[in-house]
Design a protein around this nucleic acid. Structure first.
Lengths: 218, 218
DNA sequence: CAAAAAATCAAATATCTGTTCGATTGTAAC
DNA sequence: GTTACAATCGAACAGATATTTGATTTTTTG
């Protein structure tokens, strides 16, 4: 066979979302190109028309998730809200995001190591492609740090403003992100609580640990 | 060659700890039997004298970590301390444990899925071995739930005693474990803080989110 | 419409990996 | 000291998998 009629063609993003879904279940190394291709009615060979190789595909899946998450944080961080309100919205937004797309959310937790160890870096790919991969991967990790920094800085801001106790912002931020990322691992759509419920509870928990005065809301 | 003199022989546990270490870096699927064997100066074939197959080896690595963690929690849970003190000790103990052995700690986060998808379950192993694997794996997951339950119940206990706010114990427990497990992923011995410092900060954070400030509240 | 480009596939390849088997040697039992 | 058992290795296998290549068809461009 050859090129399919347009109605049956798949977009780059469709492949990425399907890939995330397979990844969630099997993990990077157990996921074959065939598995991913099958999800979108392609053959493994066809994937190479869209992506240089398997490592690049993984990188793009992860980038998709991170870009989206950062994009949602940006307006909140830039706003003039009190730190406690900012942080609450950040936590809620992130958790809702993770529960809305558990596939990408889980990938962000589980597949990071696969990205680190990607064999493309010391492989038999064209040197220029290998260099591009490394550059893009480094950029990804930088963005990932930037994402964490958004939380850390908001906590610091709250401390400076006197809204929060003087905690170790770095560690508290890591605790938050650990808890939030973990949601993507255990969350089930059929569970007792919806993503937004979980998000509110966790936001409330962390805010309660930070706020100086008395808690509120209900 | 054949059997080595006793001084060069390796114990089952030595293999497991080495395996955890390799696992931490590469992940289950990327880790070859040869990799593990090389760490303890054996050949891949020799590992099969100690373990039925790769899946069983993974199961034992994880079991080693979980057993140890549970063992440390038990006396704390059984004690007559106030809930807030119990919980603080549980959190600290767990995090210290995780930072003391990041290899096993990381495996507990990252390799769970590999255990779930283990091909031994639908494989070509002797049916009796497959059955044993499934039974042992199920037991592992039950113990894992039990571990989480220790935290959940301690939170509930604190609520009942009026020490804690009336939070959703299930979600808060998951938040804690997410944060705690995550430590095993990012912790570095060369970092700014030692495991115990991190442990105290996190315990303090979660306790602050739970403890009732004012002695009243319907 | 003609030419170029895009999207797809089948088939072939080279490599890697878990696992088995039989042989070999050290240790323990009696 | 002979016999059984434990621990190890080398070699070989069967199966799987990422990737390449070349052909084929649809879409787009001019």
């Amino acid at each position: 066979m050859a090129r399919k009629p347009a109605s049956l063609s798949v977009s780059r993003e469709t492949i990425l979302l399907a890939a995330a879904d397979v990844l969630r279940q099997n993990g990077y190394e157990s996921t074959t190109m065939k598995d991913i291709a099958a999800r979108v009615n392609l053959t493994a060979a066809s994937l190479y028309h869209h992506f240089k190789n398997k490592d690049f595909l993984l990188l793009e899946v992860l980038r998709l998730g991170l870009d989206h998450a950062i994009q949602q944080m940006t307006p909140i961080v830039a706003s003039e809200l009190p730190a406690r309100e900012k942080l609450a919205r950040m936590i809620i937004t992130h958790i809702v995001e993770v529960t809305n797309n558990t596939a990408v959310g889980a990938a962000m937790v589980f597949e990071i190591r696969a990205l680190m160890n990607a064999r493309t870096t010391n492989g038999q790919l064209q040197p220029e492609d290998a260099a591009r991969f490394i550059a893009e991967r480094d950029a990804f990790f930088q963005q990932r740090d930037a994402f964490e920094k958004l939380f850390r800085n908001t906590i610091r801001e709250g401390i400076e403003r006197g809204e929060f106790r003087a905690v170790d912002a770095s560690i508290v931020a890591k605790a938050m992100l650990g808890a939030q990322n973990w949601v993507g691992v255990w969350y089930r759509e059929t569970g007792r609580l919806k993503g937004e419920d979980i998000a509110r509870i966790m936001a409330d928990t962390f805010l309660a640990s930070l706020i100086v005065a008395e808690p509120s809301m209900s």
